[in-house]
Write a protein that binds this DNA or RNA. Structure first.
Lengths: 245, 245
DNA sequence: CTCGGTATCCCGAAAAATGGGGAGGGGATC
DNA sequence: GATCCCCTCCCCATTTTTCGGGATACCGAG
């Protein structure tokens, strides 16, 4: 721990205090990047994590990324194989790109994503995953050619990431479309009980409807989110935060 | 912002650095409490948030609570109505107990919980909710007679809570599951595929075993964790972190 | 007013899961 | 050597879900 590290923490907390007064996401973006550039970061994004089948583009809140990277990324469908993204689904701890696990099944494709990122000037990176209670998984992502972060600075960046996400959410709230859920109330009711192991008959009794109706709701939920059976639907609904335990 | 606040941040980060070397949860507990006592906190717990039907007791990782409070809390079933707990399900931001929303349907019961907490010496409190990828949750909870936290200190406590959670998870890992996991490797394999919507036949093909065997694994997994069907088993296995998506 | 979405209900055949049971081999542990 | 657990496989009756179809009614937006 050095004085420089402490100075960084100090500045980070000052910046966090300042987030409350910012109304323009560009302010957030530039202030954060200015602070972390000494660690070697030149790129900075805050984005939600969509379903594997979706594109990343529409979910980006803030982005300073290499020119053309995002559109290329979406066009070739990197999102599904990006080991950094997949790591975000599994952990709540901040991590450097060097620490991610490469799933054997998609190893080659995952390496390609990272190789191309390197070619675009993002040889190294650091992510702060965000897991929200009601519906979002998001990630604050920093990248550059070479990064250097003492442990204490890393913690400061962690904190900065958490609050930057809050600030980004707030400042881009108007611009974003209202997030509607896919499933209907009844479908979520039925899935919630199914998640607890109730059969259609039992759910029908609980909700005071016929078991046929319960089956119809399960069927419609399956069709809506494109799942293969009730188990799959429940898991996916949990993952999308359509239902909660 | 005062020098005292900065000193607090400094100490908090020192403590966080020290978590890595701690192997006894009691160390974590006492060091954290020693640091935050100047804010007025005298009680400190880290606990998972179980399903509403469960008890809190078995999910507590660390606990310095008033004598008899936890057993009383479980005995009278406060968990289901505790407005602080319910607030944790909804938010990702740290919050003081004064900021929680009282749901009208359970208002009286919720007030009773808080009144009894006050009688036990916990008139005020502060929580750091923890959310992981599946939406399963934990909370770091601090309480006392009267608390005082300037904004900057509050951020420090936030950070402290996040890392204390990590430390508590790590240091209590052995105590919680000395033998490892409940399910066998094969049972987890089968459940992992079931979570993705595969039928027994499909899983059998994937794993190169007969579908009878797959059904047996599903059956044994059901019996082991005491669930009602495959959907329930998968959800519970995810919650217990026996499997991951 | 029509159209789309939601919620409710129904049918029937086919597929899948469940709940009993049993059984052999292998590996670790005591 | 006995015991326990894991993995594997099997049978069979029953229950449950799935997957095609339907249908009626309400409600809000265009």
């Amino acid at each position: 721990m050095s004085d420089a590290d402490d100075a960084f923490i100090h500045q980070a907390f000052d910046l966090i205090d300042g987030f409350d007064d910012m109304s323009d996401p560009l302010d957030v973006q530039q202030r954060v990047l200015a602070l972390v550039k000494d660690c070697g970061f030149t790129y900075f994004t805050i984005t939600r994590l969509p379903q594997p089948s979706e594109r990343l583009g529409p979910n980006v809140l803030l982005s300073i990324w290499p020119r053309g990277w995002l559109s290329h990324y979406d066009r070739v469908g990197h999102y599904r194989y990006d080991p950094v993204v997949r790591h975000c689904y599994r952990t709540i701890e901040p991590f450097a790109w060097t620490e991610v696990y490469y799933e054997p099944e998609i190893l080659l494709r995952a390496r390609r994503v990272m190789d191309e990122a390197t070619e675009h000037g993002m040889a190294a990176g650091f992510c702060v995953p965000i897991h929200d209670a009601m519906g979002f998984q998001a990630v604050v992502s920093l990248a550059g050619e070479r990064i250097e972060m003492p442990p204490r600075v890393r913690r400061g960046v962690h904190m900065l990431g958490l609050y930057a996400w809050g600030a980004a959410e707030r400042t881009t709230a108007k611009r974003r479309k209202p997030t509607g859920r896919l499933l209907s109330v009844r479908e979520r009711d039925v899935l919630s009980w199914a998640a607890l192991g109730r059969t259609s008959e039992e759910v029908a009794d609980i909700l005071g409807i016929s078991s046929q109706t319960v089956n119809t709701h399960l069927k419609n939920a399956r069709l809506k989110i494109g799942t293969r059976n009730t188990t799959h639907t429940v898991v996916e609904a949990l993952r999308r935060r359509e239902i909660t335990l």
